[in-house]
Design a protein around this nucleic acid. Structure first.
Lengths: 225, 225
DNA sequence: AACAATATATGATATTTGTCATGTTTTAAC
DNA sequence: GTTAAAACATGACAAATATCATATATTGTT
């Protein structure tokens, strides 16, 4: 089994604040799991009892609303931690996590990491900083949801995906989301998302090939009214 | 000047995790300020360089969106802390804070509290827990914004105000918000908020007297489709 | 008390977004 | 490769919400 102390992914999240001894202890009790595209890592309401460290792949965090639609709240990437909020709040998961492509995920049980969180102030401050960042992002999303049009929100989502995950060799966005996923990020009907993507295509701001999307005019997307 | 060690408000926020010595030190450097209804405590983009502790009163946290409208993200009450997120993230304020009634607010400068945050693990864990709670609330608001109607959101806002701030002697909500404030919480046009309040009145779910609002049928409000 | 400023109320209308229906394309399974 | 299922696309229409106009009520100020 691979070791946390040597895992490069750790550099990108709060685990970097742990000492070598702490890492070795955690490495000894962690489990690693591969998750196929579409599979559930955990579900809303579930007692996750630990923290996930994303070694590879991308997943979505979403919540089922009363009307039966999933709302995607955040995309989580290779290097990110998952489940800290529930751990700290000592609650069951508020959101579900579903893989968007094939993933490799490590799981660190609660009892192993909770001590570090309460006693290693460098580590807990790092977790605190990450959570502060998440909170800012969520607050900004609230403002966007409330004040921007579906078209603007969809354009911003495309830009977000471009900025965070980049393009593949042929210039298409490297993360492939279904139209339904885009709708569930933006908070609109799937048909509306499809319609607006068609519109953006007609306007020359993007082009598509199957599910793949290419950004043709970033400035144009940024300036949608 | 009154002393933090003796301040009852402290019991309601993370400052309760500080030792008597730390509190005395902080008490010595804090400043207290009264803020009149409508006055600004700090503005988005401002460098606040410290934390506010709300001794009395209520304020709104809001952000100006591109279309010129304020979006209210959170109501903050007596006992709450303000500015922790910016402090932890070492950033300027992401939101503006404006008093909704007359307030008394203490200010603790950054350099005094930052040490405690990094070294008193009980304190920083308490701040972390509060932030985890805020993050959960914000994520839930995103879902509501995206998936619920304006009428549902407005009804939920009324219920929220009722649950958190209660009624006055005559049964009216104890916190008085303008119709514009309600619109800015819900993320809609002021006219729409007014219209829906009129509708709720006709349906017998609430009654009003000037700016005052009385909840007549809580269950009814909860079950709006 | 009179006045101006601000907030509330409501109608008419335009715009945005959602829903339902239906057809086409792509993907996955055998 | 064929076929069934899922995803994508688009039209027609309905519903929700925003905008503009205007009237009334409330509040604070002199």
């Amino acid at each position: 089994m691979s070791k946390c102390e040597q895992c490069i992914v750790r550099q990108f999240n709060s685990l970097k604040a742990l000492s070598k001894e702490e890492l070795i202890r955690i490495s000894g009790c962690k489990t690693t799991r591969t998750v196929k595209k579409g599979e559930i890592i955990f579900e809303e309401g579930e007692n996750i009892n630990g923290v996930f460290c994303i070694k590879d792949g991308i997943c979505k965090l979403s919540k089922l609303s009363a009307n039966g639609k999933d709302q995607i709240v955040k995309l989580v990437v290779k290097g990110d931690l998952l489940g800290q909020r529930s751990l700290v709040g000592e609650e069951s998961a508020n959101l579900s996590a579903v893989a968007l492509n094939d993933m490799e995920v490590c799981f660190i049980p609660k009892h192993e990491i909770m001590n570090d969180l309460q006693q290693n102030s460098k580590f807990s401050f790092d977790v605190l900083q990450q959570m502060a960042k998440d909170l800012k992002e969520s607050d900004d999303i609230i403002v966007n949801m409330a004040q921007k049009s579906v078209k603007q929100r969809l354009a911003e989502t495309l830009i977000y995906v471009y900025n965070h995950f980049g393009n593949n060799d042929e210039g298409f966005l490297d993360v492939i989301l279904s139209r339904e996923d885009y709708a569930n990020i933006v908070g609109t009907a799937t048909e509306s998302a499809i319609r607006i993507l068609s519109q953006l295509k007609k306007e020359g701001l993007i082009s598509t090939s199957g599910k793949q999307i290419k950004i043709e005019d970033l400035k144009g997307l940024e300036h949608i009214e």
